[in-house]
Design a protein around this nucleic acid. Sequence first.
RNA 1: GGCCCCAUCGUCUAGCCUGGUCCAGGACACUACCCUUUCACGGUAGCGACGCGGGUUCGAAUCCCGCUGGGGUCACCA
Length: 581
Amino acid sequence: MPDVITRFAPSPTGHLHIGGARTALFCWAFARAEAKRRGGDARSTFLLRVEDTDQARSSEQAVAGILEDLAWLNIHWDEGPRIGGTGFQPVPGAQPPTAIGGDARRVGPFFQAQRLAIYNQYIDWMLGHDLAYPAFDTAEQLDAQRKAAADRKHTYRYKRDASYDRDAALARLRAGEPCVIRFNNPDAPVHVADAVLGDITFEPEHIDDFVLRKADGFPTYHFAVVIDDELMGVTHILRGQEHLNNTPRHVALQRALRRTDTDQPFRTPVYAHLPLIFNPDGSKMSKRDKDKAARDAAKKAADTAALATVVAPDASPEQLATWLDDKRSQLPTNALVRLAAHLSLDLPEIEVEDFRASGYLPEVLCNYLALLGWNPGNDLEKFDLAFLATTFDLDRIGKTNSKFDRDKLRAFNADALRAMTPEAFAARWREWAGHYEPRLASIPDGTLPIAARAAAPRASTFRDAVAQIAFAFTADDALAFDPGAVQKVLRKGEPTGLETLRDLAPSIGAIPANAAFTPEAIDAAIKSFAESRSLGMGKVAQPLRVALTGTSVSPGLGDVAAILGRDRTLARIERCLAAHS
RNA sequence: GGCCCCAUCGUCUAGCCUGGUCCAGGACACUACCCUUUCACGGUAGCGACGCGGGUUCGAAUCCCGCUGGGGUCACCA
């Protein structure tokens, strides 16, 4: 059976967008599952190609970020840029961090900027067959023609006219005059057989002589993608529906081209256009959403001078002012992050990195992403990559765009966190915190599973989990007491909560330090005290809770006290008694 | 505006191809109750959709047409 070869082809202009992650996931899963369906000798290849033909916007830093994001998600590519062994921590229990990428079939390089000679070879061939031609129009001329077409309520379509002098144009090209190379697109309708959307026909009057090679010598996306997919043997192209209107261009090119090495015609791969992912309000999920959220909060804060100080290292006061006024402007990422922290605002997660920083699990993100536009056909919603690698299929991809539902993602993540053992939770929590939450380092290794047990049922993300034990990060003598809780829990009642707390203290103090100061021992002490005084647990527990956390809401008291340890627990009780007597 | 795509609960969706078993199933969210030392967790129950109008048919969420609505795309970006 023939091999299955898919590819993910990001352009390195920023972090990996959540929609891109889904595309990569689908490409990966399809290659695996389809090869399996085809039988033993069908191989599966998922390759990663970097589309860095936009010299102005591409960056090496973005490449590195995208590779790491994919690796973190455990979407590993067989061919493409090599990374391996370092830089990211695989999921415990998952495959070991072997190298990712490589070029087993010798179809690289996988950076388009390194393939210019190949593209030029095909440009020359096309020029020779009058399948392509030089064009010398200026940007102003093109703009004017577009505007004229728009005035006639028509779409502008570039076509070489009858008076075009090919020989003269070729001579100018040889003389080194700057120009673009355009496709001499034949006037024929193009049929696209899309595996998701079905058959679509594009009439010739809508297909133009698009640019193949830019004036800077780099290929356009349309040209490079067709050449590379053929040369790399790509059999199936899964991509976002925003590319649907590009497809007739690609198919027309494939029909025009032959390989320079074998003289075989180009093949047309199977296309599958994926529905798009939007915000709940229907807008595009974009980095600008972060600016919008921060801007809205900043405007409410009103104290612009303070904001300028906060943002100072990364943005000038003028930048800030502009940003505040202009909805389209964007602030440097660091400034945005600083601002959000200052305003106690959670920026919306848009890129994979954002979800990672918020403390989502990669396997949960993949699971949720898979459900956006695909489903296994029954009521099953929770599954892993191994399931996708055997089950994923094109005919179960939906046609309708979907909205990204953070609540559902959170719920899935919360379920996954709760399903972990405290030890497993603690290990991955610590790993995450190493990147994103230094405060967690103050919790001793032996205590972390207790903290995990306390936080896990109350947390949707690792970041949430930290918030659940925030009481432990405050110095004992700096703990703030919630006035409402003090009034209700310590002042009222007969006896008052404060009196009960005073009586309870020796029972807690009677528990030996270190190993014996366990959640079980602490809970037992509280319980037996309550029973000995014939008091309800609420009468006893709530005052202690206020003393230890400053509030009337917290995880179980045994866990809370054990996380603090004996010394800090007793210190907090003492301080509470002193402060409110 | 031209072209292209889409249309089931608030959201993600099953069902549609191969009409009847669907007064439409699941999940998230929401509501109520139970459990309970607080908050959660957990358990139980509930609310909630076939966009509209025509056909075809004994029968339509399922097939056809129109309308409406939503989205994508119209670059020397990808």
